[in-house]
Design a binder for these strands. Structure first.
Lengths: 147, 147
DNA sequence: GTGCAATAGTGGTAAAAAGTGGGTGAATGT
DNA sequence: ACATTCACCCACTTTTTACCACTATTGCAC
């Protein structure tokens, strides 16, 4: 279970030190085997423990090839997916195409999301926080949700 | 299984170095025998390991001849198909007609898509990423999909 | 409160591998 | 027969990646 957000830095080579708390969770649940890919709705990245990834992969593959939205989802999720391994210092190397996609520079935010993590450029994260989506539709599943 | 995206360059002769990761997968699954053809929905190319291609070919041929969409699909997929072989350095030579179709110049993106690969002009790829498809229909299979 | 120790984070280096460019000979087509 | 194209090969340059060393920070004990 991944909770909380962490401000972390990426070095000049695109390496990223996973915060120790999270590192421990990762070793527990997947021996450090991660899959990182693009988020389809925002320009940020998704980090899955490999077992979680293997659960959703078949669902993505099963989507219809001749629907535009489905094709976009497939192309991004599968097309950007990349297995990652932590190095001896608990760092991972982010492939250039993913850095590019999410606009990652030095300052990043790693955000726990339960079964997965999200990785944001700090700038984009802050911008997203400021966005007001007042006019968006609330799905049925949330109509009766009480927090 | 092909995952992940790679920025690659085409040289002046129209040769294209396959990234090592993918090269290994290709040698494993088809001894480097590829078939490349046109994508019917976007102006990019499809790269199949030969066995995968031989699986889908009969399905394409079986499409009804008196339907316009089906005819277009056949014409493009079969009409542009071309077998490729990697050279000693893991490069392939792209036929001019395919380069033309997909608008390939120097900078390309090779995108893993599970059983196949897609090859894009980098420009077109970036444009496609920026396209907003907000008004498209979300297929039923995705209505309750939770990733 | 201060100092020491352990651990996290950062930067650098060197060996290996991958990408790039070019040249030559064979083959094909005019 | 000649020209042009293409496949194959060789060599060089750049990038990658794994490993190592140092600095900073945190936490604990005295």
């Amino acid at each position: 279970m991944f909770l909380g957000s962490h401000a972390i830095n990426m070095d000049a080579k695109g390496r990223l030190a996973i915060p120790t708390r999270i590192r421990e969770s990762l070793v527990d649940c997947c021996e450090g085997n991660l899959v990182i890919t693009a988020h389809t709705e925002e320009r940020c990245l998704l980090v899955y423990p490999e077992p979680q990834w293997l659960e959703i992969l078949p669902k993505i593959e099963a989507l219809p090839s001749f629907n535009k939205v489905a094709r976009r989802t497939q192309r991004l999720l599968i097309g950007y997916a990349c297995p990652l391994q932590m190095d001896g210092n608990g760092r991972v190397l982010l492939p250039p195409t993913l850095r590019e996609y999410a606009g990652l520079e030095k300052k990043l935010m790693l955000v726990g999301q339960g079964k997965k993590l999200e990785l944001w450029s700090e700038d984009r994260w802050v911008n997203w926080l400021d966005e007001s989506d007042d006019d968006d539709v609330i799905p049925e599943e949330m109509q009766s949700l009480s927090l």
